[in-house]
């Protein structure tokens, strides 16, 4: 573990200036927000940014609001702010559930949703819930803005789809639909302050006893967080019960590609993906607002 090496510190006054600075320094620059992932990565010598653009002062990126049928979360909204937001708890409970078990209070007070996504850890806790919410990510650069569906955002371990001159500025999600239920389960190596061995988010939309839509996403079981679309297909238009859910959950192993590391073996991750998917779906079904 090393000291943080010297770097050029830039503090843009507004988003516009940040975009310009990033346009200028591109590849050699890193965006600094909460720093909770970035600083350990620098100390572990995984990255050595020459320039850091500190956007942590840009309050214009710190918001959680409803606009039309969308909930918009500014990239600098901290995990604590999201966790405590009545809007998030009321309309996208699956995200609130994940935020509750992310890191610890100190990390949640500092870490931002934008940072959690940009860091693109396969185990990022906010990724599976945002995937089942079909989140859209807004990025800005000197060239303009673009919307990236979250499914296209993660391109590999610690790699994302942003161009070197793009800043992630907003996360957009639709509220969980009527007659839907959702859940998030994280399996760590202890009960708090732990990285996921496997995490699972599920959202199901019911039409009477039939499942109209099902979305499942998993973390820490592939190079990126993944949606389990084949598994979802086994649920859609089915009458949901324990049996259907159990047999669908078996399918999930075909959609993941876990590795063995100090946190768990690939074999255990495969098993737990099934177990957690099943549990998560059952909990989601249980929570369907009737």
């Amino acid at each position: 573990m090393k000291l943080i090496p010297p770097y050029r510190y830039l503090r843009p006054k507004n988003l516009q200036e940040a975009v310009e600075q990033l346009g200028r320094y591109g590849e050699e620059a890193k965006i600094l927000a909460g720093g909770t992932d970035l600083i350990p990565m620098i100390r572990d010598c995984l990255i050595t940014p020459k320039t850091m653009i500190d956007i942590s002062f840009l309050d214009e990126l710190r918001y959680i609001r409803e606009e039309g049928d969308m909930i918009k979360i500014g990239a600098l909204a901290t995990h604590s702010e999201i966790l405590k937001s009545p809007l998030i708890n009321g309309k996208t409970g699956v995200l609130a559930k994940a935020e509750k078990v992310l890191g610890a209070t100190q990390i949640r007070n500092r870490g931002t949703i934008g940072g959690n996504l940009c860091n693109a850890s396969p185990a990022a806790d906010t990724a599976p819930p945002l995937m089942v919410l079909n989140a859209k990510l807004k990025a800005i650069s000197v060239e303009g803005e673009r919307i990236i569906p979250i499914e296209e955002f993660f391109t590999g371990p610690r790699k994302n789809a942003l161009k070197p001159n793009e800043i992630l500025v907003e996360v957009q999600v639709s509220p969980e639909p009527e007659k839907s239920g959702s859940s998030f389960i994280k399996l760590g190596r202890r009960r708090a302050l732990t990285l996921s061995v496997v995490s699972t988010a599920a959202l199901i939309v019911m039409d009477g006893v039939k499942c109209r839509d099902a979305r499942i996403a998993l973390g820490a079981v592939a190079p990126t967080p993944v949606r389990a679309k084949e598994t979802e297909k086994l649920l859609i238009n089915k009458e949901l019960n324990g049996e259907v859910i159990s047999s669908a959950a078996e399918k999930v192993v075909e959609e993941i590609n876990p590795i063995t590391d100090v946190r768990g073996s690939a074999e255990y991750r495969r098993e737990m993906s099934k177990v957690l998917t099943k549990r998560c779906l059952l909990e989601a079904l249980e929570s369907v607002k009737r």
Partner: peptide, 9 residues
């Protein structure tokens, strides 16, 4: 708010 001062520049 409590934060880890080692993670704040």
């Amino acid at each position: 708010k409590p934060v880890n001062s080692c993670l704040v520049l």
